[in-house]
Simulated scan of single mutants.
Amino acid sequence: MLGAAPAAPSWADPAPSYAELVARLDQTPASAEAAALVDAAEARVRQARVRPNPNLDLSAENVAGSGPYNGFGGGDFSLSFSQDLELWGRRPARVNAARADAGAASLRRDLALIETAGRLALTYAEAEAAQHRAALAEEALSLSVADARAALALVEEGREPLLRGIQAESEAAAARAAFDEAKAERDAAFARLSAVAMLPTPVTSIEAGLLDASTTRSSLSDREAP
């Protein structure tokens, strides 16, 4: 157990910064759908501004029958023309309704972007916090292993009782279990971040931290405050 000290991974695929991921939010399916709905609503606004087309109707009676109505010679034909005048503000009302729908679609698009950015920020922060916890657990494991090795050396020299060595090994085993749990939580958080951010390769580390940047901005704001 003492020989199984944690080792740093030989490869790592760091996640893009949160700012980079936010800049690519318009490529997500939800954002693309919301943008398409906005385009459709704006197209309806342009359509609402256009006057209605006139109607031309041709009708025929007493044709293609039998007897004196055989063929088209004895038929009656009529041609009618109609145009919707859109009186009493019908056209402005239609345009205003289409504009309202377009405005609502634009707001829904912005809301979708905000919700996606918020979900991404939460997932990013959880992954970063899990990475910090795993790093702390790894450091604690290294210290426990070093302490256990020193205690066993003292036990072998007769300078410490056997119970001290057993206690040190137990503490190292507990630290190993805590590190394995923290590492599993970190890997799960990285997997969630990869899925939410729709990254082509799985994330194995975070270098441009969101929590550290938030803490730094908060500290600067406190210093600048009167």
Results as ranks from 00 to 15, higher is better:
residue 2 L to N: 02
residue 2 L to R: 09
residue 6 P to A: 13
residue 6 P to M: 15
residue 13 D to K: 06
residue 22 V to G: 03
residue 26 D to I: 08
residue 26 D to A: 07
residue 26 D to N: 05
residue 31 S to G: 11
residue 31 S to T: 08
residue 31 S to Y: 06
residue 35 A to C: 00
residue 36 A to F: 00
residue 38 V to D: 11
residue 39 D to M: 05
residue 42 E to H: 12
residue 49 R to W: 01
residue 50 V to N: 06
residue 55 N to G: 01
residue 57 D to W: 07
residue 63 V to L: 09
residue 66 S to D: 00
residue 67 G to L: 09
residue 70 N to W: 01
residue 70 N to K: 01
residue 72 F to G: 00
residue 74 G to K: 04
residue 77 F to I: 02
residue 77 F to L: 03
residue 77 F to P: 00
residue 80 S to C: 11
residue 86 E to K: 03
residue 87 L to P: 05
residue 90 R to S: 08
residue 99 R to S: 12
residue 100 A to V: 04
residue 101 D to V: 15
residue 107 L to S: 14
residue 108 R to G: 11
residue 111 L to V: 06
residue 119 R to Y: 05
residue 119 R to I: 11
residue 125 A to S: 09
residue 127 A to S: 04
residue 128 E to D: 12
residue 130 A to S: 14
residue 132 H to A: 12
residue 133 R to P: 00
residue 134 A to C: 07
residue 137 A to R: 05
residue 153 A to W: 00
residue 157 E to N: 12
residue 158 G to K: 15
residue 159 R to W: 02
residue 160 E to T: 00
residue 160 E to G: 02
residue 163 L to V: 11
residue 165 G to N: 11
residue 165 G to K: 10
residue 170 S to Q: 10
residue 173 A to D: 11
residue 174 A to N: 08
residue 179 F to E: 10
residue 181 E to F: 09
residue 186 R to G: 05
residue 186 R to Q: 12
residue 189 A to D: 02
residue 191 A to E: 10
residue 203 V to Q: 13
residue 204 T to F: 03
residue 211 L to A: 03
residue 213 A to M: 04
residue 218 S to T: 12
residue 219 S to Y: 07
